[in-house]
Nucleic acid binder design. Structure first.
Lengths: 213, 213
DNA sequence: CCAAAAGTGTTGCGGTTACACCCATGT
DNA sequence: ACATGGGTGTAACCGCAACACTTTTGG
């Protein structure tokens, strides 16, 4: 008698994490390559089943930390995906989280479920396992929406950043060009950053560094 | 050998529905009284376990229709609650939905889980089972938020309504007084309602009825 | 004639947008 | 000297908020 024969069929619960990171002024997400059928060699989001007596936020953080070494991370639930067909093998309801962080170290993969791990530009996603493309698209919408109400964008930047960088991130997430002077006016008006006395030297150009208040 | 002994412990999945309705110009939610320990005689939200191979939206609609007779209903997922302690007996992850409707017929209760069913003013909630108070509070926040972006508020009104009624709903949900002239200007500007040639007579007063475009 | 609700416009302010030139520096 | 990016201010416009009186009608 093995487990499968006696298992009572109920939907299972998982979390999937859309981990955003900015590389070369492009928004990337962390993907892992799967080691098992039916999604062998397909890319997918990090994630996994919720453990009994574990909170959703914990499960998200745990799965995040299996891939990256991070301390201060913005991690937020944004939507739950439950179509019975989203996983071809069984019915799994997945709670979507997105994370914002800045160039974290990736951990060596020691998870047998994963063959590889990589940052992928959100504009050049490969074919993804499950409904993970939809999850990423939905995450981007929520990220865009939150940008307008919160200061989460700083989580994608290093401690010290230039105004140009800050503007570019806004442009990427909102997917439109912004006016330099209006952008700076607005930022200063909101009183959320302050000058440092440092300057970033980039070739012959130098620009002032700022930091979050 | 019974089921309990061989059951593999995993979190279960449920949906809970916050059904909003407007009664006497007050926002109400539908609550049911529970028939079983440990929440015997406690009020709770309608809801129930997700069936295998059932979509979340379907589960929400099914549970909604067990209580009310509705055709056109606005039903929307807003957040997922998964604290292991939210149900004292087992670990249930619950996907929260809210529904907007106008004075639906309540069905006779034929669900053995329910002793009673009732509309309750959101400002005089009794002590609730599980974390349902938190779920309702969260639903109200999301309702308020959506009000600013969408036209969902009409789902709480009859087909034909007065501008006064429309304004009152906005005031209730936003929890603040609005200026009559500004409100009407805005509504007309948005081009979302049109005049009917009917008039509501209320005692000695009469006001024009409008309908959604 | 008085009380109560319906209905109707204008003005001012504040925030957003549009827009162009100078500076510093490395080649 | 010139090419490139960094940095800065003003004017027009639009949406939002504040605000009060007239009309109707039942008692």
């Amino acid at each position: 008698m093995n487990k499968k024969e006696i298992k009572i069929k109920t939907p299972e619960v998982a979390v999937d994490i859309v981990i955003f990171n900015l590389i070369n002024y492009k928004l990337h997400v962390l993907l892992i390559k799967m080691s098992k059928q039916p999604y062998l060699n397909k890319w997918a989001l990090p994630g996994g089943l919720l453990k009994i007596e574990e909170s959703l936020d914990n499960a998200a953080l745990r799965n995040l930390q299996e891939c990256t070494s991070v301390k201060d991370v913005y991690l937020r639930q944004f939507y739950t995906f439950g179509e019975p067909t989203r996983d071809v093998t069984k019915h799994v309801v997945s709670i979507g989280y997105f994370a914002l962080l800045h160039n974290p170290k990736l951990k060596i993969i020691n998870d047998p479920r994963y063959l590889d791990i990589n940052w992928v530009d959100i504009n050049s996603l490969p074919e993804l396992a499950y409904d993970h493309e939809q999850i990423i698209k939905t995450a981007i919408k929520h990220l865009r929406n939150e940008l307008e109400y919160t200061n989460i964008v700083f989580k994608l930047l290093p401690k010290e950043f230039t105004l140009k960088e800050l503007q570019i991130i806004h442009e990427i997430i909102l997917d439109k060009k912004l006016d330099k002077r209006n952008f700076r006016k607005q930022i200063f008006l909101r009183n959320i950053i302050k000058e440092t006395n440092k300057v970033r030297i980039n070739g012959k150009y130098r620009s002032r560094l700022y930091t979050v208040i």
